[in-house]
Design a protein around this nucleic acid. Structure first.
Length: 903
RNA sequence: GGAGUCGUAGCUCAGCCGGGAUGAGCGUUCGCCUCACACGCGAGAGGUCAUGGGUUCGAUCCCCAUCGGCUCCACCA
């Protein structure tokens, strides 16, 4: 038997244990018809990412669920992997290249991709090794990557399928364009920053009436692309303008006045310029009124010129232009200028022409790219879209009908809210890093061909001049397939049949819309099944001030540093205690410390038990040899196992943990171990055996219940303690055993604990030095109670600091009048400590107790005497209240009797 | 503008979907190095459960309103 160190040192054992687990293949899972599967797919961390607290929490929750089910005998599979994170990774790689003076264009597509893959190999491994430090028990042999062969095959299959079904289309839409990254980004990737800006009030003359229409804009350069001005149809100020036209300054072009809801009567003058090609709202207005779209900006943010017009013309002639292609305007003298510089020039010219009325300073929110923080230009551009409505419908029903359940339930609303408002999903990105869109265009006839691999000739005209679409797919497109692409889909693999649908998805509430919803509709659409039945949502980890941890604030805490200092167990545990599912949690080192202390407590309890193991043969003990306290703790542990299992099944991980925590520290260590200490020194082998047997059995139960949460310490203790089983992580989860249910003993020990606590409190109150032992007289009218105290004498004496214990039926002459009294409902104790007895103090204490009891009785009587309570409340509640009342009355009688004696 | 969420002990949070707030950790006070553990042991102090109504025999819990904090979505000419 190994000896344990006095203080638990996590850093000394964690790496070794993890290594053993991996080596022994304990994390692996294979289809096994004898067992039920339990599957979780890990939300793939970005390859560019470092492990942060959010991951730590996410991974810990999954590991707990997996370890729990594995011990329960499920074939538990946790599939790990990483995400290529298209825009984030591409941005980082580009940045690294820039330091070497290189650009994407210089390297070419192939050269760039090679660099990106190198990056992936380097940093993808970093996050994997960090996950291992946490103790994650994933099946690493199945590690996947969103751009690996299998996942890519899944992506191509889905793209083709959706295209063939008409659910993917290409069209001109308003997108958020980042001129710096040179790509469209999704709405979610736009951040808003409050910046000082200007509101320019422009004047447009009306051709028919000659009046001047005043309107305001923050982007005056877009006026070149205006194709209408709009007023609200309800607005009396402008009703006379029906059928009129405004004359666009500088261009001297007539544009119609349209009547549209979009114009807000309350805002400004109620007149809005409409630039369908460069504003999302104007785009909609343009659609409603059939306005032309005039594009004035190039995709890298400059004013269009003659070249751009020619290019657009060629595109149109090639037949490859999609529907709704905007016209391009040659901006003449402004052509080629960056938008901001053109703005200056245009303002100058407007002012010169008398079209600029005033300039107003304002503070407004500007959309910027979440990567590079450059201002976003809304642009009409040709993109690929997924038609959402037919896909969303079944996904909404699956959740409404509870085939997929959210934990906590309130996130169902978040999900439905998102799904019910979803618009068509723009899936193309002008990036190189990602899944390239499997569409080819025929140079000759303009045909679009979607195939999983490059077609040799155009099926329409036979031409070999085919070019592939240069764009790649939105990262979430591949993430959406993750639950089944990782299991082999579209192949009908054994894994897929056995492990899919998966069981639980664990993730943060921040990506319900981007990810969870897309997995759900994808699973339903492509596999015909819900990809999981439960979505367990957790909150964010914040700093101690409640702020989001972020790089820019510099308030992030590195989980690896915490692991180094306190151990992975302490970190894992601290991310769970005292937190309800779905709620954000603040990170405190104090909490980690408390968890570390708990691990140490368990460690020392085990150490104590091991020190006594040799004193007895604990192999098997007859039930009748078990002492009252043995039965009590076994019964408690037994019920604990039952409750914890129920809590875990309901995903109440925090509650389950706090139950084991309280049991282990309070009941097991502070009470049971203390109770049993005298017996370990007993001559009698039977009682020693029973004690050691119980100690070990309860310890093992506690270790097993704790293992999912704190895998390392529990494994180290378990393997040191057990000789037959090799690992706790594949040992059997404790199950409720009716033979270990001892309600009478539980009740009895509670009575003893009550009196012990009372004696201790009285002694402390009287300032009796801990070393001063005293004779204790226990008085109990009830014979059964007397028996309990007699049978428990060995530990009752020690716990109550007694030199000797005498159990009596009545308070007899034997007990000195001056003895200090300790009163509980079941029994009373008297401590003859003459020299210490302070009559005043004793009376004061008793009077305070009397008052408390009287108020309790008043409350109880108030309820019981209320006929509406006794008539309407459930039988059980009434009975409980009656029992309470009786208890208070008994105690009050004792207190009063005692007070009478003292007066 | 739409939705959600929180307001309980000095701090951070639990509170089993109506029944005494003996709630937890940290902090704090007093006493203890009691032969597993000072990362510990024993005993305390500390709360009008944000405010105002309502439903109910009974509300920290359900409903409505108000105040204050946070989040997501939409919008920001």
């Amino acid at each position: 038997m190994k000896e344990l160190e006095k203080t638990y040192d996590a850093s000394a054992i964690e790496d070794r244990i993890y290594h053993t687990w991996e080596q022994e293949g304990y994390f692996g899972a294979r289809p096994d018809p004898e067992k039920k599967p339990y599957t979780i797919v890990m939300p793939p961390p970005n390859i560019t990412g470092q492990l942060h607290m959010g991951h730590a929490m996410d991974e810990t929750l999954q590991d707990i669920l997996i370890r729990y089910r594995r011990m329960q005998g499920y074939e538990a599979l946790w599939v790990p992997g990483t995400d290529h994170a298209s825009i984030a990774t591409e941005a980082k790689v580009v940045e690294a290249m820039r330091e070497e003076g290189l650009t994407k264009e210089m390297l070419g597509r192939e050269g760039f991709l090679k660099r990106a893959f190198d990056w992936k190999d380097k940093y993808g491994n970093r996050i994997v090794s960090q996950l291992k430090k946490l103790g994650s028990s994933c099946d690493w042999s199945r590690e996947r990557f969103t751009m690996d062969e299998g996942c890519s095959e899944a992506v191509l299959t889905v793209f083709k399928k959706l295209y063939d079904e008409g659910l993917i289309y290409r069209g001109n839409r308003m997108v958020n364009w980042c001129p710096y990254c040179n790509t469209s980004i999704s709405d979610a990737e736009v951040e808003y920053e409050s910046k000082p800006g200007k509101f320019w009030h422009l004047l447009y003359p009306v051709k028919e009436t000659g009046e001047m229409l005043e309107l305001a804009t923050t982007r005056p350069e877009t006026m070149l692309g205006d194709t209408a001005v709009a007023v609200n149809p309800e607005d009396p100020r402008y009703s006379h303008l029906k059928g009129c036209h405004a004359v666009l300054p500088l261009l001297n072009k007539e544009i119609p006045v349209v009547f549209d809801e979009h114009a807000d009567m309350e805002k400004g003058t109620g007149v809005v310029k409409i630039t369908p090609a460069h504003d999302p709202n104007d785009f909609e207005v343009g659609n409603r009124h059939n306005l032309p779209r005039v594009r004035i900006l190039t995709y890298d943010g400059r004013m269009c010129g003659a070249d751009d017009v020619r290019e657009a013309q060629e595109l149109l002639e090639s037949g490859r232009a999609a529907e709704g292609e905007p016209e391009v305007l040659d901006c003449g003298k402004y052509a080629g200028l960056p938008a901001l510089e053109a703005r200056k020039e245009i303002l100058k010219d407007l002012e010169a022409g008398g079209y600029l009325k005033e300039t107003e300073e304002i503070q407004h929110d500007v959309g910027v790219c979440y990567r590079c923080h450059h201002v976003i230009e809304p642009m009409v551009s040709k993109q690929w879209f997924v038609r959402m409505q037919p896909l969303a419908e079944p996904a909404i029903r699956a959740v409404e009908e509870d085939r997929i359940r959210f934990v906590p339930e309130r996130f169902k609303k978040t999900y439905l809210n998102w799904m019910n408002n979803t618009r068509d999903w723009c899936i193309s990105r002008q990036l190189w890093w990602g899944h390239r869109i499997p569409a080819w265009y025929c140079e000759d006839c303009g045909e679009t061909i979607v195939e999983k691999s490059a077609p040799a000739v155009c099926p329409k005209c036979g031409s070999t001049h085919l070019t592939q679409d240069p764009d790649t797919l939105d990262t979430w497109f591949s993430s959406a397939l993750w639950p089944f692409s990782t299991l082999g889909w579209p192949e009908e693999t054994e894994d897929l049949k056995y492990f899919y649908p998966t069981d639980t998805l664990v993730t943060g509430y921040d990506i319900i819309g981007f990810w969870v919803s897309r997995m759900i509709f994808s699973g339903l659409a492509y596999t015909g099944k819900e990809p999981f039945h439960t979505v367990y949502i957790h909150g964010l980890v914040r700093d101690s001030e409640g702020r989001k941890m972020s790089k820019s604030l510099g308030n992030g805490i590195d989980p690896l540093e915490v692991i180094d200092r306190y151990g992975a167990d302490a970190l894992r545990m601290s991310l769970l205690v005292g937190n309800a599912p779905g709620n954000d949690m603040r990170f405190y080192y104090e909490r980690v410390e408390a968890c570390r202390n708990f691990a140490n407590k368990i460690w020392n309890a085990a150490r104590f038990i091991m020190m006594n193991l040799e004193k007895a043969d604990a192999a098997e003990v007859r039930t009748e040899d078990l002492a009252i306290e043995d039965r009590w703790i076994l019964s408690r542990a037994n019920r604990l196992a039952k409750e914890v299992t129920e809590n875990l099944d309901r995903y109440e991980l925090g509650i389950a943990l706090s139950k084991v925590y309280d049991f282990a520290w309070d009941e097991f260590c502070d009470w049971y171990i203390e109770m049993v200490k005298p017996r370990l020194r007993e001559e009698d082998a039977v009682t020693r055996n029973a004690a050691v047997f119980t100690l070990k059995k309860v310890l093992v139960t506690v270790l097993k219940l704790l293992h999912p949460y704190i895998p390392f310490v529990t494994e180290e203790i378990f393997t040191t303690l057990q000789d037959e089983e090799k690992t706790i992580m594949r040992s059997a989860w404790p199950v409720y055993d009716p033979a270990l249910d001892f309600p009478a003993e539980e009740d009895a020990v509670e009575k003893i604990k009550d009196l012990v606590r009372e004696i201790r409190a009285v002694r402390t109150g009287m300032e009796v030095p801990p070393g001063r032992k005293a004779q204790v007289y226990v008085v109990a009218k009830d014979e059964a109670t007397r028996k309990i105290f007699l049978r428990s004498e060995s530990f009752f004496r020690v716990l109550s600091y007694a030199s000797n214990v005498t159990v009596l039926a009545e308070k007899t002459e034997e007990i000195p009048e001056s003895a200090v009294s300790c009163l509980t409902a079941a029994a009373q104790a008297y401590l003859p400590l003459e020299e210490l007895l302070d009559l005043e103090k004793e009376r004061a204490r008793l009077n305070k107790e009397k008052e408390r009891l009287l108020s309790e009785l008043k409350r109880s009587d108030g309820m019981l005497n209320n006929p509406r309570f006794t008539e309407r409340a459930p039988e059980k509640k009434i009975h409980e209240e009656q029992e309470k009342r009786e208890k208070y009355q008994t105690m009050l009688d004792q207190v009063e009797e005692r007070l009478k004696l003292l007066s």
